[in-house]
């Protein structure tokens, strides 16, 4: 999920940059140097996983997975997502320089919120854990969609309709992300629970 260059107004871009800098600062500060290789390699895994296209009816959507990022990385989601976005901006020109902050906040803030909301629940018994994982995947995408439309509306009222469309387009993605996050967390709990500590 990206906002391209040239759309947002200066106050929104500046606020996005400031919040992203603050979040990344906290993330880096809490990131033990011993954990950087792990964070980097997991960020690479998220980068690759987000290129997977999942079929839905005649079309397909690509995964965002910021819910899973949040559950595994916590605050380190900020630097990890920033890094992934820099790579996408330089290699694919998705996003860009001025929108880097806004795009980071868009994806990383929901990840951190989901970390606090659902991380304590995924170690409970399976029924609770899987429901929490589903809600986590869904909520992360929903919050990202809401932030995206918030950025658009704060830029100008004329973006109201576009932002409504953006939210509508995210509803199927939310459901798929919920399902994928649920199975993915279920899998990790069985195979390598240490990843979710």
């Amino acid at each position: 999920m990206h906002i391209s260059e040239g759309i947002l107004s200066l106050p929104v871009l500046a606020a996005g940059t400031a919040f992203a800098a603050a979040g990344t600062g906290i993330g880096l500060k809490r990131l033990d140097p011993d954990r950087i290789p792990k964070t980097g390699i997991l960020a690479a895994a998220f980068f690759v996983a987000s290129l997977i296209h999942v079929p839905i009816g005649p079309s397909s959507v690509h995964l965002i997975l910021n819910g899973v990022v949040g559950l595994i990385l916590g605050w380190a989601a900020f630097p990890a997502i920033l890094v992934a976005l820099v790579l996408q901006a330089v290699f694919f020109q998705y996003g860009g320089i001025t929108t880097l902050g806004a795009n980071t906040v868009l994806m990383a803030l929901p990840a951190v919120i989901c970390y606090y909301a659902f991380h304590p629940l995924i170690h409970k018994r399976p029924a609770i854990a899987l429901t929490a994982a589903f809600a986590c995947g869904m909520l992360a995408v929903m919050l990202s969609g809401l932030l995206l439309s918030g950025f658009l509306v704060f830029t100008g009222q004329h973006f109201l309709e576009v932002s409504a469309m953006v939210i509508a387009a995210h509803i199927p993605v939310m459901i798929i992300e919920g399902i994928i996050t649920m199975f993915c967390i279920g899998f990790l709990k069985k195979v390598q629970p240490a990843l979710l500590r």
Partner: peptide
């Protein structure tokens, strides 16, 4: 089934990455 498979693929990717 397809979504479950993709979720496991992603899970496996994280396991191997870590």
């Amino acid at each position: 089934h397809c979504y479950k498979t993709y979720a496991y693929v992603i899970g496996m990717l994280f396991v191997r990455a870590s």
